[in-house]
Design a protein around this nucleic acid. Structure first.
Lengths: 118, 118
DNA sequence: CACGAATATCGACGTCTGTCTATGATCGGC
DNA sequence: GCCGATCATAGACAGACGTCGATATTCGTG
């Protein structure tokens, strides 16, 4: 059987590795979307550079320059994706960066970028 | 000077480390936003698991189940943030994962999450 | 130079998202 | 038991985003 490629060279970029499933792609995107916001990045950075006990919501509102409900919204998003822990004490609520939460994310990105090639 | 804290215990969660600047937060968010999309994640994954020469656009359209302009749009976003390289040959265009692009991103996340603490 | 193929750009449309104000829920103190 | 403080929820609104069809652009072929 002769395959006539002719003169128009096909692009030839076959994919051997298994394609990422829709579910996996959406799961990863969900977590990344949670981090892909300037304010939430600022929040994470503050949590990262604070005591492990966490940071009180009231101490986030002013420095971020946001209304209190907006801060609550962002914290809810971060908590919903498991990046952040929530602890209530009296009327105060303390949010803290979950141990290795960003580390895992970081690892996922590294794997996606490197592992499949080598 | 006596500070009367009274009985209502303040929350006391001071921040010592320098806060992330608005610009830095937005720059990081811009790159993360580029990755925080299921289709773009799929594209990156395909580029990562393909030959270093890159993948032809025409070989991305069908597997992704998107219209050709949509694929072009996503590739433009990825290219715009420096995550992906573009190489044209004849009428074909090949996109390839930029060396250590995701590695750098991954490192940034790790730093944000860990470095500031210790 | 006309034509077909491969990409990019344009404009439009529906949806998601970040922000706010107003209100509800919960807890402590008086 | 009322009241103030802290945080969460609800609803509204503007802007950004992903997708598409239609069209422009570029390149190689005959």
């Amino acid at each position: 059987m002769v395959v006539d490629v002719g003169l128009l060279a096909q692009c030839r970029t076959p994919l051997v590795a298994p394609a990422l499933s829709d579910d996996e792609a959406e799961r990863l995107a969900r977590v990344l979307k949670a981090v892909a916001d300037p304010m939430r990045i600022k929040i994470l950075h503050r949590l990262a550079s604070a005591a492990p006990d966490g940071v009180c919501v009231c101490d986030l509102v002013e420095p971020l320059g946001l209304a209190q409900p907006s801060v609550s919204h962002h914290l809810k998003v971060l908590h919903g994706t498991g990046l952040v822990d929530r602890r209530q004490e009296r009327t105060f609520v303390y949010y803290s960066l979950r141990e290795d939460a960003l580390g895992h994310l970081s690892a996922l990105l590294a794997i996606d970028g490197r592992g499949a090639r080598a």
